[in-house]
């Protein structure tokens, strides 16, 4: 069965069309890596799936329903982490998410405390959750953010750049953790990232966004010269080096260099 279906969807942000006439069909339990340059619409797409942006045209179905704010079946790890240097324990940070949409006293009952303990355990953060957020490393905070996304029993996880500002080793750890959780809990995952390589081997398919368009398929299908050239509207070459893949702009055009650097570590 399909977890996420987009039919002829166009998304705009501040009057600018970000994604134009997109069709997607993502099956339940799939791990999708969402890639593309800055501004290609990765965050916009995730926000639309959360119901925070209404499409100009087309229809979106998440687990058979129109996206709506507060859907407990969807877990979300946002990209903007404006508040992560607070002097509050990781545990209380995660606990704030649980039933945080209800009015009343911010007191956790025994059931809620068990639920918080469960998700902290799932991401292996039970110990570090005792420390203040301000004292944690980027990777440790990422675990806590992942824990809050697992509260309740989500079927779909929308993770917006969880690898941002992590070193390559930590990136691998986070990807492996999400991959394990997804298999274990039978989750459908949309994992947006700047780099392709950390996700290879874990993701089932890749969704590449660029130039208002989207390409969904296996790495072999999508990360190819012709497909990316079409998305970027310029000549792109794809180089395989061992089990790593590098996306290069053939002419080293300035506007594209940033993308290529972001995707494949190599400047031309």
């Amino acid at each position: 069965m399909s977890a996420i279906v987009l039919t002829g969807v166009s998304l705009a942000l501040g009057g600018r069309t970000i994604l134009d006439n997109i069709d997607l069909d993502i099956a339940e339990g799939e791990f999708i890596g969402v890639l593309g340059p800055n501004g290609a619409g990765k965050t916009t797409l995730l926000r639309a799936l959360l119901g925070l942006i209404t499409p100009m045209r087309g229809s979106i179905r998440v687990l058979g329903q129109t996206p709506g704010r507060g859907n407990p079946a969807v877990g979300y790890l946002p990209q903007t982490r404006s508040t992560l240097a607070r002097r509050i324990s990781g545990h209380d940070f995660v606990a704030a998410t649980l039933h945080g949409d209800r009015w009343g006293l911010a007191h956790q009952d025994a059931t809620e405390r068990r639920e918080v303990a469960r998700v902290l355990d799932l991401v292996g953060a039970s110990d570090l959750a005792r420390r203040p957020l301000a004292d944690l490393s980027g990777g440790e905070r990422q675990r806590l953010l992942l824990a809050q996304a697992l509260l309740g029993t989500p079927q779909v996880l929308l993770l917006d750049e969880p690898l941002m500002s992590l070193d390559p080793h930590r990136q691998k750890v986070v990807v492996a953790l999400v991959g394990d959780l997804a298999r274990h809990l039978k989750l459908t995952v949309l994992f947006s990232a700047h780099e392709l390589n950390p996700l290879i081997g874990t993701m089932d398919r890749v969704l590449y966004l660029g130039g208002g368009q989207a390409a969904l398929g296996t790495v072999a299908e999508v990360i190819t010269g012709p497909v990316l050239s079409r998305l970027y509207d310029t000549t792109i070459e794809v180089v395989h080096l061992g089990d790593r893949i590098f996306v290069l702009s053939a002419h080293g055009t300035t506007g594209l260099e940033g993308h290529c650097h972001a995707d494949g570590h190599v400047h031309v």
Binding site: R47, R69, V74, T83, R86, I88, F93, T97, G100, Q148
Partner: peptide, 12 residues
Amino acid sequence: FATLQPEVAEAR
């Protein structure tokens, strides 16, 4: 919730 995780709170 809104203080610690404004983006998630909004989505919820």
